[in-house]
């Protein structure tokens, strides 16, 4: 018990406490003298910054956009591979593959796919369509990131939904069939309600994960063009390591924690209410 508590304190609680202390300071690591206590000034400055709220909006759009694409698609794929047919294991593995590849490697591949001379523009050219500036146009950059991220998240969501589907007792579905329910009504009134806890899990975990996104955005757009893909984590990075304002960056990090907590809590409440209904 003691080693576990000590590890928790040293590895988790103390860094968090130190991070919170930094958020109450003005701290430029290039300057000598260490952090200077400024109380809540950093929080006030961050909360009154348009740049921060713009990043919050982009973070919500990014997380929501990815979830809207991922959750139904993952459920659909799980239903598809829930049956027994030749090669189903291989099919499941292939669909899960993006999940196990590093996000950085995936981002590098998609950087080429989206580039002016990349695969997508090559295909567009083949069918006689003009090229698209996927990552360099402020109207398409965020959507392009969402598509990539949804593709990456699909396999993980599918596997969890598949586990949920396989845990549904067969006799419930058979009873529904005996009562005259077709496949759609079985899905709508038996499968879907029983998948609510799984859906809550998938959505909440994805919200927590997506709201902390950084590496794919750093590689694909660096937050541009015109800050259209600058999520809060990207802004934290820029504040900390480009502008050397670690106090502000730490305040943003704690505000991001509050945002993630609020989004996760909201999801749990909304989805639980939907499930009870």
């Amino acid at each position: 018990m003691l080693p576990a508590v000590a590890a928790l304190v040293v590895v988790t609680l103390l860094p968090i406490a130190y991070g919170f202390y930094l958020s109450l300071t003005s701290y430029n690591p290039v300057e000598r003298g260490g952090p200077r206590f400024h109380g809540l000034d950093g929080y006030v400055a961050v909360l009154s910054s348009g740049q921060f709220w713009q990043a919050v909006l982009v973070t919500i759009q990014y997380a929501a956009g990815t979830l809207i694409l991922t959750v139904p698609a993952a459920l659909g794929l799980a239903l598809l591979v829930n049956g027994r047919f030749p090669g189903v294991a291989l099919f499941r593995s292939m669909l899960f593959l993006p999940r196990v590849v590093s996000l950085v490697a995936v981002s590098m591949i998609w950087l080429w796919l989206y580039s002016r001379d990349g695969l997508f523009n090559y295909v567009l050219d083949l069918v006689g369509l003009p090229p698209v500036s996927f990552l360099t146009d402020e109207d398409t950059a965020l959507l392009s990131l969402i598509l990539m991220r949804a593709w990456k998240a699909l396999g993980g969501g599918m596997i969890i939904f598949l586990a949920g589907l396989q845990a549904i007792p067969k006799d419930l579905l058979e009873a529904a069939a005996v009562d005259g329910c077709g496949r759609w009504r079985q899905f709508r009134h038996v499968t879907l309600p029983l998948l609510v806890p799984i859906t809550i899990y998938v959505v909440v975990v994805d919200v927590i994960y997506l709201a902390q996104s950084f590496s794919e955005i750093y590689i694909l757009t660096s937050g541009g063009p015109l800050s259209s893909t600058t999520v809060v984590n990207m802004l934290i990075y820029k504040e900390a390591f480009e502008n050397y304002r670690l106090g502000h960056a730490s305040a943003m990090a704690f505000l991001l924690f509050c945002l993630i907590f609020a989004l996760a809590y909201l999801n749990i409440r909304v989805l639980s209410r939907g499930g009870r209904r």
């Binding site: 003691l2 000590a6 304190v9 040293v10 103390l14 860094p15 130190y18 701290y27 003298g33 952090p35």
Partner: peptide, 23 residues
């Protein structure tokens, strides 16, 4: 046990403080 925990916290605090001072 209390001593162990306290010395662990103290050591960690010193490590973190050293990380932060940057002098």
């Amino acid at each position: 046990v209390t001593l162990c925990v306290m010395s662990g916290i103290a050591a960690a605090t010193m490590v973190l403080t050293a990380c932060g001072s940057g002098d």
